[in-house]
Amino acid sequence: MSQQPVIIEGLEYRFGRRKALADIDLRIGTGEILGLVGPNGSGKTTLLKILAGLLRPSAGEVRVFGLDPFRDRARVMRRARFAFAPPPLFEGLTAHEHIAHLAGLGGQRPGRAAVTEALEVVGLADRAGDRVRTFSLGMRQRLTLAQALLPRPELLVLDEPTDGLDPLAVLELRGVLERLRDDHGVTILLASHLMVEVEELVDRILVLMDGRVEFCGAPQELMRKGERLRLAPATGNLEDFAAHLRAAGHGDARVDGESVLVAAGALDLESARELARAGDFGLAAFAIERPHLQAALLERQRQRLEVRRS
């Protein structure tokens, strides 16, 4: 029976008195790509560092391949690779030396061909002999990814891997990750601010806000929750139309641009038309709007802030 690579139960982490993470429960399946998203300070990097055995949980249990990552870090690292942001590198070494020496730590030193192949995958083969200190941010990101791929891990954890990459490089990275999952069954945990990339690539998404799990599931599910109905009156004032809808029991109706938004599923076309006619507005437009992941997340953040204020 294959073990789930990552099991987290009741995880809590404190910086002094402040809870950076609380009540985190998560299981990542073999061969899954999980996206980890959230605003700055939500606890994403803290969670990754706990998985890497760099931080010790204040409470709860974390298991990577059945091992405690803080106590058995070296054993975990035989099967997992981590690439943090900003990319830490050995500045004085060449790209080839960097990969060769790192990959050889704690294991067998890879051959020249394997190192060259890793650099080719990330598009740095022609810079293999150059010192890392001469590299741009994008090149450093690529080198960090290359060192995480050699030798090929069972679990790959990437923190903001697309920072500094041009659109073509982002596309290439997506291809690499998909091939790793599809061809080799590698489990991937990907922390990113680039919502578009996460949306296209991941099987599931974990949203952290204020150190807690806000959402965990398929990205489509989150976007479906953010669906809205967009209504535009044929005549009359938008604010009056929104007030009319609120009076009819749709308390969340609000003006947005040149139309009014209400929760999806609240009205079908016929009942919307009836309601608009009853207020002498008429109905000029009726559309279901499904937001992109970024918009869905922003809306969720906005709602959370409103709850906090009230």
């Binding site: 890497a52 055995g53 870090r73 070296a74 900003p86 830490p88 590198l89 730590l105 704690g106 294991g107």
Partner: peptide, 16 residues
């Protein structure tokens, strides 16, 4: 510099 993190994310014991 972060190089320590780089070393610790390899399968090497802290003693090593």
């Amino acid at each position: 510099s972060g190089a320590m993190k780089l070393l610790l994310t390899r399968p090497v014991e802290r003693g090593g």
